[in-house]
Computed example of a mutant assay.
Amino acid sequence: MPEAFVNYRPGDEEPAATMIARELARRFGGERIFFVGNSTEFGHRFPVEPVRAVEECEALVAAIGPRSLSQHGRADQR
């Protein structure tokens, strides 16, 4: 099972999360990284596979942006 889990909120930091996952894979090997954007194989059950990866990983990296802080997916406008 992967040792690092990289996650992001769709539409809010996907480019940053992609770069982080790509760099971690380059340094440590792709088989050691679970990237939510492309690690669930076609035909496998979602969310079973990502939940298992989170439970078994050594490190979780979450790319958090302005939309991640809002319950409805958009930054609060105050």
Rank of each mutant, 00 (worst) to 15 (best):
1 M>W: 05
9 R>A: 13
68 S>W: 00
18 T>I: 01
33 I>Q: 05
5 F>R: 01
3 E>N: 09
24 L>A: 09
34 F>W: 01
69 L>I: 03
27 R>K: 09
7 N>C: 09
56 E>H: 09
29 G>F: 08
12 D>S: 05
71 Q>M: 07
78 R>Y: 07
52 R>E: 14
18 T>F: 08
58 E>K: 15
38 N>F: 13
31 E>H: 14
13 E>H: 00
37 G>K: 12
65 G>T: 01
24 L>F: 14
19 M>T: 10
50 P>T: 02
12 D>E: 00
18 T>A: 12
21 A>K: 00
10 P>Y: 04
76 D>T: 10
15 P>F: 01
33 I>R: 06
52 R>S: 07
60 L>K: 08
46 F>I: 14
2 P>L: 08
46 F>N: 01
5 F>L: 06
60 L>I: 15
31 E>L: 10
65 G>M: 03
49 E>S: 10
53 A>R: 12
66 P>H: 04
71 Q>I: 10
19 M>W: 12
75 A>G: 07
40 T>R: 11
70 S>E: 05
78 R>G: 07
26 R>S: 15
54 V>H: 03
51 V>A: 07
30 G>C: 09
49 E>C: 02
24 L>G: 02
9 R>F: 04
68 S>L: 04
9 R>W: 04
67 R>N: 11
45 R>Y: 06
2 P>V: 09
1 M>P: 13
23 E>I: 09
23 E>P: 00
16 A>N: 12
1 M>R: 09
64 I>H: 07
34 F>M: 09
33 I>W: 02
37 G>V: 05
23 E>G: 01
18 T>M: 03
38 N>L: 13
65 G>I: 07
75 A>L: 11
46 F>H: 02
58 E>S: 11
23 E>V: 09
47 P>D: 04
43 G>D: 09
32 R>F: 03
49 E>I: 15
59 A>P: 02
70 S>P: 05
69 L>R: 05
47 P>W: 03
49 E>D: 13
15 P>W: 06
64 I>K: 00
59 A>S: 07
11 G>P: 03
34 F>C: 07
42 F>P: 00
33 I>F: 01
72 H>M: 10
68 S>Q: 02
39 S>G: 14
57 C>W: 10
35 F>A: 15
28 F>Q: 13
10 P>T: 11
74 R>E: 06
43 G>H: 06
76 D>H: 09
42 F>M: 10
18 T>S: 11
29 G>E: 04
45 R>E: 10
62 A>T: 10
23 E>A: 08
76 D>E: 14
75 A>S: 13
69 L>F: 05
12 D>L: 02
5 F>P: 02
20 I>R: 00
14 E>Y: 06
44 H>N: 14
40 T>K: 10
41 E>G: 04
27 R>H: 04
74 R>P: 03
46 F>C: 04
41 E>I: 13
8 Y>M: 07
73 G>M: 12
7 N>A: 13
14 E>M: 02
6 V>S: 01
75 A>N: 04
74 R>Y: 14
46 F>Y: 15
32 R>K: 15
55 E>F: 08
14 E>T: 08
42 F>I: 15
25 A>W: 05
3 E>H: 12
25 A>V: 02
41 E>C: 05
69 L>C: 00
24 L>K: 01
76 D>L: 14
24 L>P: 00
15 P>I: 01
45 R>M: 09
36 V>M: 05
11 G>V: 06
27 R>T: 00
48 V>L: 08
